[in-house]
Design a protein around this nucleic acid. Structure first.
Length: 347
DNA sequence: AAATTTTTCAACCGCCCGTGA
DNA sequence: CTCACGGGCGGTTGAAAAATT
């Protein structure tokens, strides 16, 4: 079916916004809320399409936006979440509340991606170049284990993100019930995706990442990197967010996993490992920072990244794939464990 | 100081999904 | 069930700014 363009292009302005236009948009939304974006430009006296207005608002004019340089902490968060979620910028943005997905995407493309490449890490898979050399050894199984865990943590992470957004939605409904207009921060991006997630049997339905688990004869368990687009992966986060039909597949996998000796082994290992990373460990972040954020000194000397979850060897002459990867995912999962909201336990 | 190249990032584009008529 | 609409998302573009020659 053909789709009409979002706006009649004739006579509509494009390109950079002027301060006057910003002022008009701001004033209108402050007084009326954005309502229907399609009809907003006319009401607000703007020669723009609704989409353009929405973009300007969500990426620039919203009052709850933090601008300026990204902190090291934010950089870490982005890298770690990208390793888990891939290019799902909106999902990543839910963990950086004052940053927009567009800003994060730009920052990734212009700064972080290059930095990883420089360090010999594939920004898509978050794996070191050397990894492919060890693919036929037992190390790949360990890597798969870690990736498998990352997969599960990804599901948990998304559930957290959704809970956070649902919470915002509740705020919004609260305002609407009281015939108040909601603050601006509640009027964007939260309005459509979450409303029906908990319908039906009343169970909390968890967002699931598209399962990319595949089996091969040689490897009992192989996880395809989240960052790599495949036919099985949907195009964007919405696809993952909203297709609850994918969740049973995930659960099914979990159930069948428990009956498979190979995977049971994996899961036992996994629990041990998770217990290990749940212990308070100092220095993981520091280790991660030196590993990923360009601390060249950290790569020259053997560095103990953490006292508990395994030291990472970053000696250039003796690169240890397994330990390095373990620390990498350790750091990612550590981030998830320390995420601000009280998350539902998946295991 | 001027010209050229590179980087940054705001904005656009096209696609997709949910919703409701 | 079909279709149109509204809106969200990720990829891409291109003008402006910064860096380099």
């Amino acid at each position: 079916m053909g789709r009409s363009p979002c706006c009649d292009k004739a006579g509509l302005k494009k390109g950079p916004w002027t301060p006057e236009e910003d002022q008009k948009l701001l004033a209108y939304i402050e007084e009326h809320g954005h309502g229907s974006w399609r009809s907003l430009p006319e009401k607000a006296g703007l020669q723009r399409c609704g989409k353009s207005c929405r973009l300007r608002w969500t990426n620039y004019l919203r009052p709850d936006i933090k601008r300026g340089k990204f902190t090291v902490q934010e950089e870490q968060t982005i890298i770690q979440l990208h390793a888990l979620l891939g290019n799902r910028w909106s999902a990543i943005a839910t963990h950086l509340p004052k940053r927009t997905d567009n800003e994060i995407k730009n920052y990734w493309n212009t700064h972080l991606k290059k930095r990883l490449v420089k360090m010999g890490i594939d920004p898509v898979t978050h794996k070191h170049k050397n990894e492919t050399l060890s693919s036929s050894t037992g190390q790949s199984k360990n890597a798969a284990t870690l990736s498998h865990m990352a997969q599960w943590e990804s599901a948990r992470l998304e559930a957290e993100a959704r809970l956070a957004r649902e919470s915002k939605l509740l705020h919004l409904q609260h305002y609407q019930n009281n015939n108040k207009s909601a603050p601006h921060c509640f009027t964007h991006k939260t309005s459509t995706n979450w409303t029906k997630q908990n319908e039906g049997n009343g169970d909390q339905q968890l967002e699931s990442p598209t399962s990319t688990v595949t089996f091969s004869e040689n490897l009992p368990l192989m996880i395809m990197p989240l960052g790599i687009p495949t036919e099985n992966r949907n195009r964007n986060s919405r696809d993952n967010n909203n297709k609850s039909s994918e969740i049973p597949a995930m659960i099914e996998f979990a159930v069948s996993s428990s009956t498979s000796s190979d995977v049971t082994l994996v899961k036992e290992h996994e629990h041990d490992w998770i217990r290990q990373i749940n212990c308070p460990t100092e220095g993981i972040e520091e280790g991660f920072t030196s590993l990923l954020l360009g601390d060249s000194i950290g790569r020259k000397n053997e560095t103990t990244a953490s006292s508990g979850a395994g030291a990472v060897v970053v000696n250039e002459s003796e690169y240890n794939y397994y330990e390095d990867n373990k620390n990498y995912w350790n750091s990612i999962l550590n981030l998830v464990d320390s995420s601000p909201s009280d998350s539902p336990t998946m295991f």
